[in-house]
Design a protein around this nucleic acid. Structure first.
Length: 201
DNA sequence: AATTGAAACAACCGCAGCTTC
DNA sequence: AGAAGCTGCGGTTGTTTCAAT
């Protein structure tokens, strides 16, 4: 049986929004000791949070390399393309967007892009073009498809391969499916090993 | 100015997969 | 081999903000 890396002790953790003081404690601790061993981190850092919560806070909001702010058109297009290829694999998608997190991409998808695709008559689940007329009533009259977004007609790539971890640049849609609407799609989907500062628990 | 509903964002929960013993 | 711990991911929910009425 594996030895726990820290004394297991169930505490009633704080939940809800993080305070500035908590953020600072977490930042200070990680700057000193690096990431890793999330379970023991809270106690070591003087936080009354679960390791999970600390990890999430760091990964999604405190990491210095995060690019905060609006997602631009290029990023949006890339998200759509990657989602067509990978499905809801947000961490993989976020990995192709420097400075963006899986949570951010997921939220953006759910709040912006899903609706946008539906308005365009595209099923956001599989990126298939819906039957003409379906849901098109959602599109305001005279509204053109946003600039920078392609006509997704013909996008019929199934996502079977997305269930495989072997996502790489040679992956392509199976016969009969087409990504003809993605002419500039040149994705290197090799999963690079992250530069992790090794820390021993 | 107050109310209400929608949109956007932040955080939690549960589960799966990997690692260790 | 399998049980248990840990981490990371994806789904979901809660809270805040903003616009419309």
């Amino acid at each position: 049986m594996r030895k726990p890396c820290c004394k297991k002790k169930e505490t009633s953790y704080y939940k809800g929004a993080w305070t500035k003081q908590e953020d600072q404690k977490l930042i200070d601790y990680i700057q000193k000791h690096g990431e890793g061993c999330w379970r023991s981190l809270p106690q070591a850092a003087g936080l009354v949070r679960s390791g999970k919560s600390c990890r999430l806070r760091w990964v999604n909001y405190l990491r210095p390399d995060l690019k905060r702010g609006n997602i631009d058109q290029d990023e949006e297009d890339l998200i759509i393309k990657l989602h067509a290829l990978l499905g809801n694999r947000w961490s993989l998608i976020a990995g192709r967007l420097p400075g963006r997190t899986d949570n951010e991409v997921k939220n953006y998808w759910n709040t912006h892009l899903k609706r946008k695709l539906m308005q365009m008559g595209v099923d956001p689940k599989n990126h298939h073009l819906r039957q003409p007329g379906t849901n098109l009533s959602l599109v305001p009259k005279n509204q053109k498809i946003a600039s920078g977004t392609q006509d997704w007609t013909g996008l019929e790539c199934n996502n079977n391969f997305a269930n495989s971890n072997e996502v790489n640049s040679t992956t392509s849609c199976s016969e009969g499916n087409t990504v003809s609407s993605l002419p500039d799609l040149n994705l290197d989907l090799n999963i690079g090993l992250p530069l992790v500062e090794e820390t021993q628990c």
